[in-house]
């Protein structure tokens, strides 16, 4: 389903926002330019309720079972998972690097916290990404306003709580501007 106007079904539990799943995969020979990124990323479905989320999610491959250089993105409907999107342009992301084997569990926990509005930062959250790489996997959560320190601290603290991260986990905040340079 790529419907723009997904609605909760009768008796279902609505989400605060609709969310769209995206998938991207890069072949190592291709350059990582923004154009090829846009060409390689595709929408795979939008959900509007808790029940729609589970129906969709249950059919997806677990990220930890993906091979190569692949990403799942879950973003609020209407926000492209690219820094160029207006909602992301002044934003940034918290990055958590994970050793192999942890991605599926942490990805599920981060997206449940996002769908359930556990971050308590108003409109600030844009989406979350799990990136499968060769040596390690990377989780990130994107927000709109990178220079709003109250918000970024609150997101970090919520992440620590909901993910119950190993104590030696390093969390790093990057503005999308920095990523661009």
């Amino acid at each position: 389903n790529n419907n723009i106007n997904m609605c909760p079904g009768v008796g279902e539990h609505p989400l605060q926002y609709n969310y769209t799943f995206w998938y991207s995969r890069r072949t190592p020979s291709r350059p990582a330019s923004s154009q090829s990124y846009e060409q390689n990323i595709r929408q795979i479905g939008t959900v509007a309720s808790v029940e729609q989320f589970w129906r969709f999610y249950s059919h997806l491959v677990r990220p930890g079972d993906l091979s190569g250089h692949s990403d799942f993105h879950l973003f609020k409907e209407g926000i492209k998972p690219m820094w160029e999107d207006e909602s992301n342009r002044s934003g940034g992301k918290w990055i958590i690097r994970l050793r192999k084997g942890l991605a599926s569990r942490f990805w599920e926990n981060i997206i449940l916290a996002m769908l359930g509005e556990q971050f308590m930062v108003g409109e600030e959250i844009c989406g979350a990404v799990v990136s499968i790489r060769f040596q390690e996997d990377i989780l990130s959560i994107w927000n709109r306003t990178s220079n709003d320190q109250m918000t970024t601290s609150r997101i970090r603290d919520t992440l620590r709580r909901v993910l119950n991260l190993p104590t030696n986990t390093i969390m790093e905040y990057k503005t999308h501007n920095d990523s661009l340079r």
Binding site: G11, E12, Q16, V50, L112, L115, G116
Partner: peptide, 21 residues
């Protein structure tokens, strides 16, 4: 306005009982 908040436990319960409560 009011926000729709769900904790992890509730979301997981919805997974195991797909029929609306």
């Amino acid at each position: 306005g009011t926000r729709i908040i769900y904790d992890r436990k509730f979301l997981l319960e919805c997974r195991s009982s797909p029929v609306a409560k």
